[in-house]
Design a protein around this nucleic acid. Structure first.
Length: 177
DNA sequence: GATAAGATGTTA
DNA sequence: AACATCTTATCA
């Protein structure tokens, strides 16, 4: 079953943990004539929570801009941005409209998906998939996993690469299996 | 294992 | 100028 708006319209740290073990589904349309479309399904293994304007590690802390505006909208939308000039990162917007937060998908359990930049490469996720309603899209969505994840299976750590974020850099908002 | 550098373009 | 990354190289 596909996860709905209600699932994402909640506390970001909670959603980040509950996304572990869920199935990310990506339908890649055919690129050339006669070539079949491809569907990739993979378990989410690692996430990070980025919580609103106060969180200095969250892009939305810089205010509403062309880049961050998706996060200010309703939950359940994709936020895709370019990082370091070479990679894309995939996030899902959480919380109610006006509370700009998102969960970064850092790793899946498939080949070449052990990092936020790599999994976007593997799943052919780029800026075109920014601002997509993943509760309705037929290109990208998330489904319930078969397996129920127990709280004891979830490991926590500091978020990666956010040393500039002052007191927010030490928050244990990275979750992984 | 830890650390450093380089590739690269968007962002404010 | 800094950056929510990854790969390769060079240490220990």
């Amino acid at each position: 079953m596909r996860l709905n708006q209600k699932f994402f319209n909640r506390n970001t740290v909670l959603v980040a943990q509950e996304l572990l073990g869920k199935i990310l589904v990506r339908k890649i349309p055919s690129t050339s004539l006669g070539q079949a479309a491809k569907i990739i399904r993979a378990r989410i293994m690692e996430t990070e929570a980025y919580c609103g304007m106060k969180d200095l590690a969250c892009h939305a802390s810089k205010g509403l801009t062309e880049r961050t505006k998706v996060m200010f909208g309703p939950a359940g939308y994709s936020y895709v941005y370019m990082i370091y000039g070479m990679y894309y990162c995939l996030n899902i917007v959480t919380e109610r409209e006006g509370n700009p937060s998102a969960v970064l998908i850092r790793a899946l359990d498939c080949e070449n998906c052990n990092g936020p930049g790599k999994l976007c490469q593997e799943l052919k996720i780029d800026k075109k998939l920014n601002d997509a309603d993943i509760t309705k899209s037929n290109l990208l969505w998330i489904e319930n996993g078969e397996i129920k994840i127990k709280k004891s299976q979830i490991k926590k750590g500091k978020r990666i690469g956010v040393d500039y974020a002052g007191k927010w850099k030490d928050k244990l908002w990275r979750f992984y299996l």
